[in-house]
Design a protein around this nucleic acid. Structure first.
Lengths: 205, 205
DNA sequence: TGTAAAATGACCCTTTTGTGGCATTGTGGC
DNA sequence: GCCACAATGCCACAAAAGGGTCATTTTACA
């Protein structure tokens, strides 16, 4: 028996979901919650196989809730079920620890299938959402830095000093310094840490 | 008419795929290649809507090939079609620029569906592969750094000097220095750039 | 209640960085 | 051939960071 708990502030939707789950063969709705604090208080006593949660909740945001729940039960599979296919919500939910992301117009049959999928180690999401995720994975094709500057930047990321970088690349320390100045100008930063952080955020490395 | 080109070293498989695609309504196989150099040489003259490629190719690896092709045609949709569901291949392919990842036992009907999906802005992949991608997205739940150390690290990532961090956090510069020493010890690094790089790689921030 | 970890602060000294300006050589595109 | 840009190099000085060693207070947990 696959147990599912629900977090959803809309009474009607919550009831419908519970009926759907309890009516399906092999599924059982373990608990229902209307907000984050209640699920956080109860989830360790009543742990379901899968948690289905809305993120547009009153009070504490669902994203925050996911983070807290995940810190308590790292292995719990959480599916976000929301009405908006907004980019930020998708990324924030997945970063926070959700493993699946569905929009509310998902058909009942597909919803049950997704619950089964996540339980079996999958990550159900629409193919459009998968594209968002994959795209954010990929390195930038337009890179303002020259190949040599990338060399220097890569060495910088491993914590090497200018002196060591110079030796490694067979150039003088002054040239390393020159490349770094150029990197700072192009990335619009003013220190090595900021350059490294920007390089990671912009997916240059 | 949706045009598809193939990169696959196995003559038989390539022929079967071409027959499948040409036989389907609304699909056309534009070109076939047996290795990366040939597709790289020809793809700009004969650009398909979707490129279906194996990555276990003789000579230049498919991953390298994808990088080069993507740098020439950033908007081309590439589906990796491979026999192994190996973690590294998945990540490397997606990082290199592939938008879909299918294993070779995908049914002909599903394959056509996937080609259509990627063309329509989706990212076809199995739900297990989606899980790998999503997992690699998520922040670490075990974080060796204390909350205060995380504060300092976050400021470090924005390129702030110890002096500024001290002012912002209402502590002395010496305490900032102390936290940083502690961060270095825990992350086993010896410079600010290395700490920032490790924090990003370990998904602490 | 004791102990460990977190958070705070200080001093000293060496090394590294950031920034300013200046200059040469090669390479690819128009 | 000219121009932009990448890549190379040098000097000097102020600011920042790294690595020691020292210490106190609070908090959390067994």
């Amino acid at each position: 028996m696959l147990t599912v708990s629900l977090v959803e502030d809309d009474e009607d939707i919550r009831q419908s979901l519970a009926i759907l789950i309890n009516g399906a063969n092999g599924f059982q709705c373990l608990a229902q919650y209307g907000d984050c604090p209640s699920v956080i208080a109860d989830i360790q006593k009543n742990t379901p196989n899968v948690l289905l949660m809305d993120i547009g909740l009153p009070g504490m945001s669902g994203i925050e809730g996911i983070k807290i729940i995940k810190s308590m039960l790292p292995k719990l599979d959480i599916i976000v079920l929301t009405s908006h296919e907004n980019d930020n919500y998708v990324f924030e939910s997945l970063c926070a620890g959700a493993c699946g992301y569905l929009i509310k117009d998902t058909s009942p049959a597909r919803l049950l299938e997704c619950i089964k999928e996540i339980y079996e180690g999958g990550s159900p999401m629409s193919t459009q959402i998968a594209r968002m995720v994959v795209t954010s994975f990929q390195k930038k094709t337009e890179n303002p830095l020259s190949p040599r500057e990338m060399d220097v930047l890569n060495h910088l990321c491993t914590g090497r000093s200018y002196k060591i970088i110079a030796k490694t690349l067979f150039i003088s320390e002054e040239t390393v310094r020159r490349h770094i100045k150029s990197i700072y100008r192009k990335l619009q930063v003013h220190s090595n840490t900021e350059a490294v952080a920007k390089a990671f955020r912009d997916k240059l490395i």
